[in-house]
Structures are given as structure tokens and as C-alpha cells.
Amino acid sequence: MLGVVIELKSDLHRCLQQAREVVVGKLCGLGEYDVRRPLTTTGTNLLGLVKHLTGCEAGYFGEVFGRPFDEKLPWLQQEDDPVVDMWATSAESRSEIVERYHRVCAHADATIAALDLTAVGAAAWPSGPVTLHRVLVHMTAETHRHAGHADIVRELVDGAAGMRAGVPNLPERDAGWWHQHRHRVEQAARRAAEGG
């Protein structure tokens, strides 16, 4: 049974690490404007997703288990902007945000390695006691959710699609094929809206 629990922990951790790589990988090859550019009505942008996940990992794998991350996250001191963690100011450098994310992830990895899945911490949300297992599942889901946002935002920025460099996770087709595919999908949507 212990082997199954260890395997479960390592599987969950590996899934979290894969999602982290995807989110950071979506920044590759883009300039400052494009990593910060808001492409939804709520301002979703690539660098903001990394900044947001930094706070999530620091909180869930740090504060919750009494293992606080040793750096202050400066944006948490700003109470006037409820979504301050979802975008980068012009004064915040990309390297500063990404490097802090890597440090937070290393801190989270140390917490995951040090504790059993049954270790209990105290979370503000969801309120009350939580196990490392629950936090690991939650953060894996949260990071994959934002990796999906990053997929869409990156495709809107420059058309780049797929999981990450070297792992496209999409059929290998040329731009013309994808254009025709999009047209087929658009036509199907229009016909359905018109009643068939």
C-alpha cells in the first residue's frame, strides 16, 4: 500500500510540474508587449498567469503547511487592486517574475517531498484543514487550468499552438489545413444556429 501512495504522490507531482513547464514555456519567443498583452475582457495575459500561480504555490505549499516562502510577494501588499496578481506592471521585469516563480516552485517541491499526502495544514480557502493530497490535486488542477488559458492567449498572440516546444500535442498539418478546418467549424456553427 505504501508503494501505491508514493506512486500517487509522484504522479500528482509530475502532473503539476508538467503544467508549470507549459505555462512558463508559453512566454518563449515573445517580446515584452506580447507576454503582458491583455487578450480577454478580464485582462488575461501570459506573464500575469505566471505571477498569479506564484502566489498560489507560495500560499498553498507554504503558508498552509507552516512552511512560508522566504520572500515577500510585493503585490500582496496592494489592497487597492483585487486582481493585482493577474498582470505585471511596467516596473516588474519578466525575468523577476519568472525567476520568482521558479523559486516558489522549488519551495513547493521541498514541501511536497518533506510531507506525506496525509499531512494536514490550515487553508484560508477552502476554509479549514486540508491534506497535502488535497492541496496537490487543487494546485495541479489550478495550474493546468491556467495552462489552458495560456494556450489560448498564446495562440491569439502569434498563432503558436500546442502543449510546448517539441510536444505539439496537435495533428501535424500545415497552415492551409488549419484554415480550412477553422472554416468547417465556423460553417457548422452557423448552420446549427440557423436550425440545421
Rank of each mutant, 00 (worst) to 15 (best):
V23S: 12
G55C: 08
I112A: 06
R191T: 12
V35I: 12
D151P: 08
G59E: 14
V50I: 11
S95L: 02
G25I: 07
L16D: 00
W87A: 13
P38K: 02
E92H: 03
E172Y: 06
Q77P: 07
A141I: 10
Q18A: 08
G62S: 06
V64S: 06
V137C: 14
A189G: 11
C28Q: 10
S93R: 05
L27H: 07
E92T: 00
H138M: 11
G148M: 01
A58H: 11
E63R: 13
F61R: 02
A19N: 07
T131I: 02
D70P: 06
K9F: 07
D174H: 11
A119V: 02
S127R: 05
V24N: 07
A160E: 06
A141S: 09
V120R: 03
G48Y: 15
R20W: 03
G195W: 01
E21C: 09
E142G: 02
V130D: 00
A150S: 12
G31M: 03
A119K: 04
D80N: 08
G3K: 10
W177M: 15
V135E: 03
H107D: 07
R154I: 08
R191M: 14
L132N: 01
G166Y: 03
R36I: 05
G48A: 12
H133A: 06
E96Y: 08
S90Q: 05
D116G: 12
P38Q: 03
G3T: 04
Q78M: 08
S95N: 04
E32F: 10
G176T: 13
E92P: 00
G196P: 00
I97T: 04
L117N: 00
L2H: 06
R134G: 09
L30K: 00
T54R: 00
R164L: 14
M139R: 13
A192L: 09
A110C: 03
R182G: 13
L156C: 05
H52T: 05
W125N: 14
H102N: 13
L156S: 02
D11Q: 11
F61P: 00
H144L: 08
M86C: 13
L27Q: 07
N45C: 09
R67Q: 04
H181N: 12
L76W: 12
V4Q: 02
Q180N: 15
T54S: 06
G29R: 01
W178K: 04
C15L: 13
A147T: 07
L16T: 01
C28S: 14
V64T: 08
